[in-house]
Structures are given as C-alpha cells and as structure tokens.
Amino acid sequence: MSTKRIEKIVGKAIPMPRDDIDTDRITPARFLKSITFEGIEKALFCDERENTPDHPVDNPAHKGANMMFVGKNFGSGSSREHAPQALKRFGVDVLVGISFAEIFAGNCFAIGVPLGVASAEDVNELIRQAQEEPETRFTVDIGNSTVSYGDRVVPIDIQETRKAAFLAGTWDMLANLRGNLPQVEEVAASLPYVTNFESEAQ
C-alpha cells in the first residue's frame, strides 16, 4: 500500500458539459459483473458513446487527455467505485467541475483522484477552452488550488483536508485506520449493542 504525493497534473482535458451525470451513465450496471476492476475503463460512458458519434471521450482531439471538466452534481446515484475506477484507468487523473456527489467524491479520494470545484462561469470557460482548442495544456496545481492555461489562472476549491493528504501522499487511509486498531477495540467495548446488550457497557 504505497501512496504517492499528488501535487500537479499537466495535460489536455476532456470536456463533459452536461449536468447531473450519474454513475449509471459513467459505468452502466451491467458492466459491474466482474470480480476485479481490470478493464472497467472499457465501460466508461459506453452506452452514451454508442449513441453519440462525437462523444468527447471518443473525440480524437482529446486523445491522451488526463483530466476531465464536468458540470454540476457529477457522479450522483449509485455508490459504485467502478465509476471513478473507470475514469482513473481510462487516464483521468483529476476532475474539475461545478459540484460532485458525496459518495463519488469519497470514492475518488480513496483511490487518489483529486476533485476541484469552481464556479459555473469558470467551469464553463474551461469546458469551452477544451472544446474549442483541444490541444490546450492545462495545469492543475493542487497546492495552490488553481487550473491554469496560457495566462489564465482559474481558482478551484479542493477540500482542505483532502488537499493536505494529496500533497503529503497520505490519501490512502488504510494504514492510518489500521494504526488505530487498539482504540477501535476500546470504542467497540464502550458500545452496549456490541454485546447485543447482554452485559452493561463500560
């Protein structure tokens, strides 16, 4: 379980202008039938890609992009981690959007994908830039909380605690959680339902 510091991501961006994109659309349920995440990137937006010939994910102009600009409430619905896994394995290392659903954001943090939140105006500008000049190289600077291209610097909001964890390379929480196992035992012993109320709790 080695984790790495995530400080800066530089590259092209895939623009996904629609709002309320739920995880059923990111990875349709019938592609969850697997016991590994291997290959899950093939399911990324697969239904809408099939019905949308010029889908941003397939647009050759965005080939090799490593970030995605999205609308509001991205990742709503199902808790499936398959959605952020598919994005990450497709090559998306960071997302910038107007807002993100709660569980999706937690899953992204858990697997080391930073999320940046910006105003609708700024996000729409980034989306337009990526659409109109797809070769633009954007820089997402986690420490300074900015996305920049050319002379333009757009401020983004990254949850402070998560930002610190990305910068320090401590975003993989498992080691932290395991380190407190003795305290976990103590809390368990203090909860009366843990013995199904058979004995008085301490």
């Binding site: 499936r80 899953n107 858990a110 697997i111 959680l177 395991r178 976990v184």
Partner: peptide, 19 residues
C-alpha cells in the same frame, strides 16, 4: 453507502474515515 475501497477499510478495521 460506501465504495469498494472503503468496504476494504471496514473489513480490515471495522472503521471508516468520514467527514
């Protein structure tokens, strides 16, 4: 409701890191 990495956290420690 949690994702798979978090399921791993609960299996291994019976805890979650939550806001």
């Amino acid at each position: 409701g949690i994702g798979t990495t978090e399921v791993g956290h609960v299996l291994a420690t019976q805890t979650l890191a939550l806001n």
